[in-house]
């Protein structure tokens, strides 16, 4: 037995040299990502459970998601096509896609803020890759987008709006949005866990951004200030999904902006995540 004061290292025995050296932070962060990807069944199941639980006991269930979006589209479609003097057959499909993608982006961002804090309990009880929590958050919002997407064919049919082969470009667009959602959630999730002011700041900003981003109004209406809209990264993100479905050309800089955001964001996040990953358990 060892009692304090006597050398404890004698108890531990000579330190063996063949123990693996502690891997560096970058390696650990990468391993976290790889394990997170490997356990895809885990975050997929968790995300589905999130949705099922939210609507357990209600009659419509997750269809409430679709239903509430439908009401919003009907109301805004009617009012704003009058205000802007736009033809509803063109405006309503535009509005539908804009709102769906906006809802996806904004809820990925707000959920990203709470990606770690909301699972504080799990983080402090069981060792899971941190990326699992983030992937769960993004995937949950993708599922919600899936529910809402049912409205797209309905609106298109009602408004007699066709769809062409160029609509397939929506796939790379969505993939890029998900990748961006992934790094934003890691970054905001860590910042929010450390600085509790971040989520309210982000929520306040998102509300403003909704009105100043061409979501429910077209970028052309900005006239000579159009570039303000074109360079808005959130407009670019919406555009890469909306334009192909509407069969319209992309805005001039959308792909460049989204591509730059993806690469730049991933790099910045990689640095932050490697440096502070091990602190997340202490922060939440």
């Amino acid at each position: 037995m060892t009692v304090a004061g006597k050398p404890l290292s004698a108890q531990a025995g000579p330190v063996q040299t063949n123990r693996p050296a502690t891997p560096n932070r970058g390696r650990l962060a990468l391993r976290d990502l790889a394990n997170g990807m490997n356990q895809h069944w885990l975050w997929r199941a968790m995300a589905m459970q999130d949705i099922v639980l939210r609507y357990r006991g209600s009659v419509l269930g997750p269809l409430w998601l679709t239903f509430s979006t439908a009401i919003m589209i009907a109301a805004m479609g009617f009012v704003y096509s009058q205000i802007f003097h736009l033809d509803p057959e063109r405006y309503v499909p535009f509005l539908t896609l804009g709102l769906l993608v906006w809802q996806f982006i904004s809820s990925v961002i707000t959920d990203g803020c709470s990606a770690f804090m909301s699972v504080q309990h799990a983080i402090q009880q069981v060792r899971l890759p941190y990326t699992v929590h983030v992937l769960r958050s993004v995937f949950r919002n993708l599922l919600i987008l899936g529910h809402n997407a049912v409205l797209i064919p309905i609106v298109f049919l009602m408004m007699g709006h066709g769809i062409g082969w160029e609509a397939l470009m929506v796939i790379p667009g969505l993939v890029l949005l998900c990748i961006n959602g992934f790094w934003i959630s890691i970054l905001l999730g860590m910042l929010s866990a450390r600085f509790r002011d971040v989520p309210p700041i982000v929520a306040a900003l998102l509300q403003v951004i909704f009105f100043v981003t061409p979501v429910f109004w077209t970028v052309e209406t900005l006239g000579k200030y159009r570039h303000v809209g074109d360079f808005n990264p959130l407009f670019a993100a919406i555009d890469v999904v909306r334009a192909p479905l509407l069969g319209e050309p992309f805005a001039p800089y959308s792909w460049q902006i989204v591509g730059t955001m993806t690469v730049g964001g991933l790099l910045v996040t990689a640095v932050f995540f490697s440096r502070f990953r091990s602190r997340i358990a202490y922060w939440v």
Binding site: M1, T2, A4, Q11
Partner: peptide
């Protein structure tokens, strides 16, 4: 946060 004693249970 310090180890005061570590060893067979009865002694500890």
């Amino acid at each position: 946060g310090n180890v005061i004693a570590y060893g067979p249970l009865a002694e500890v």
